[in-house]
Design a protein around this nucleic acid. Structure first.
Lengths: 238, 238
DNA sequence: TAGCCTGAACTGGTATATCAAATACTCATG
DNA sequence: CATGAGTATTTGATATACCAGTTCAGGCTA
C-alpha cells in the first residue's frame, strides 16, 4: 500500500538527504565553468587580447547577468581575469616575473608540505609515491613525455597532500592551474624529464627516511630550479 | 592670468596623471570597509555567532544590495565570512587547526622571502631592520608590550617586503590579518617577547651576512615555534 | 496544558531595469 | 577629402523587483 512515507516529497526533511543535489547556486556553476574554460585556454599561444563579454556568457550559460558577474568577480580576485571599467573583461596573461613568483610560492609551500609529511604522513602513503613512476622505470620518460608530465604534476600534488594542510592544498590549487602549463611546456627542454625523475626519487627517499631537513631542501631546490629554468629559457613569456 | 594649462581638467591626458582618482567603485569601498570592520572585531572574545545582515549593511553603507553582495562574495572567498543560503552571513571564527595551518603557510612564505632577500635585497634596506628594535635595546620589551608587539609584526612584514615578491606580499596580507591577532595574544606568554627579540637579531645577522640557508632556516623555525606555541597553549581557540 | 500546524516575515538567490561613461559612427562642414 | 562635433550604441555599475526556502511565533486542537 501507499504509505505516508512513500508519498513523502523530496523536499521533506526525511531520510533521503538530497540536499546537495538540488541547489548548487548558479553563481558557483558559472564560476566553475568559466574557470575550467580559462584553465583550458592556452593563453600563452594566442597573441591578441582575450576579452570576455558578459552578455555573451550570460546567453551561453542561459542565466542572467547577476550570477555571471558574481562569478567573474571571484575570478578577478583570483587573478584569472581583469575587468577594466567600460572597456571589458580580459583574461590575464601572467608576466614572466609573475610566473616566477608563483613558482617560488609553490616551492615554499611544497617544501613546507614535505617537511610536514616527514613528521606526520603514514609510511604507507609515502610509499605510494613510488608507484607514480613505476611505468617509467624501464623505459626513459623522454619516450612518453605527455604521460610523464602528468605523473610529474601528480607527484607534486601528492607531496602537498601528504603534508596534511588543507590550507596549503587550497592555496596551491590556483597556482597549480598556472604552473601546470609551465611544467608541461618545459618538461621537454634540456633533458629535464630525466633529471627530474632522479630528483623525485631522492625526495621520496628522504621522505621515507623521515629526514625532515633533507626532504624539505630537496623539494624546495627542485622547484626553484624550475623557476631558474623559466627565468633563463622561457622568453616566449612577456 | 588663467592660462589654458591652468584650466586643463583632471581628465586630460596632460602631465598630471590623475586617472585613478576619479572613481573607486562602491563594491570596492564596501569591501574595504567591511574587511576593516571584520579585522577590527575581536572575533575570538565573543561567544555567540557573529551574523551579518545584507539589508542592514546596505542601509549602513547607504548603497543598494548589489555592491554589498559583491563585497561579501569576495570576503567569503577570502575566508572571512561564510554565507549559508536562507540562513545568513556569518563571520567565520578560525579553528585552532586552521590558525596553525595559517602560521605554517606564513612560515613557508616568510622563510622563502628571507632566502630571496639574501640574494637580492640591498644592504641598506637590510640594515634598516635593526632600527625597528632600537628603542628596545636598553629597556626590556616586557615593559612596553604593545609597542614591542607592533615592532615585532612590522619586522615580519619587513622581511617579506625585502624578499621582493609581490605575490608573496599579497598572499601574506590576508594571513596577516588573522596572524596579527594571534601574535598579539601570545607575545605576553612564556617570556616570548624577550626570546623573540634575540631570534630576530640572529635573523638580521644572517641576512646581513647573506647566509641564505641560515636566514631561511631561522626565519622558518622562528615562526614554526609560534605554531607549536599556539598548539600547546592556545586552548581558548576552538 | 502540551503539541502540532500554519502563515507571516525574513533570508539570500536570481532576474531585470536603470544609469552613466566611453566608444564608435555619421554627417555636416571646411 | 579630411576633420570634428554630436549622437547613438555599447557596456559595466548600480538599484530594484521578485522568488523560493527557512524560521518562528501564535493560535488551534486534542
Amino acid at each position: 500500500m501507499t504509505s505516508i512515507a512513500s508519498l513523502r516529497q523530496p523536499g521533506g526533511a526525511g531520510a533521503l538527504r538530497l540536499g546537495p543535489l538540488n541547489s548548487v547556486s548558479l553563481r558557483d556553476q558559472a564560476y566553475a565553468l568559466l574557470k575550467e574554460a580559462i584553465a583550458n585556454t592556452d593563453i600563452y599561444s594566442e597573441r591578441e587580447l582575450l576579452r570576455l563579454d558578459e552578455r555573451e556568457l550570460m546567453q551561453a550559460l542561459g542565466v542572467s547577468r547577476t550570477p555571471v558577474r558574481e562569478a567573474l568577480s571571484l575570478l578577478e580576485q583570483e587573478g584569472f581575469v581583469r575587468t577594466v571599467p567600460r572597456r571589458g573583461i580580459f583574461i590575464v596573461r601572467k608576466s614572466k616575473r609573475e610566473i616566477i613568483e608563483m613558482i617560488q610560492v609553490w616551492a615554499a609551500l611544497e617544501s613546507m608540505s614535505a617537511r610536514l609529511a616527514t613528521l606526520h604522513a603514514p609510511d604507507a602513503e609515502i610509499g605510494e609515491l613510488r608507484h607514480l613512476f613505476d611505468e617509467f622505470q624501464n623505459s626513459p620518460p623522454s619516450e612518453h613525455l605527455d604521460e610523464y608530465s602528468d605523473a610529474n604534476i601528480a607527484f607534486h600534488q601528492a607531496i602537498i597532500r601528504l603534508g596534511g594542510s588543507q590550507l596549503i592544498e587550497d592555496a596551491t590549487h590556483n597556482l597549480f592551474l598556472h604552473v601546470r602549463a609551465i611544467r608541461r611546456a618545459t618538461i621537454s627542454q634540456n633533458n629535464r624529464a630525466a633529471r627530474s625523475i632522479i630528483e623525485h626519487l631522492k625526495i621520496i627517499e628522504a621522505l621515507e627516511r623521515r629526514d625532515t631537513e633533507l626532504a624539505e631542501r630537496l623539494t624546495r631546490q627542485h622547484t626553484l630550479d624550475l623557476a631558474a629554468h623559466v627565468d633563463r629559457y622561457c622568453d616566449f613569456l612577456d
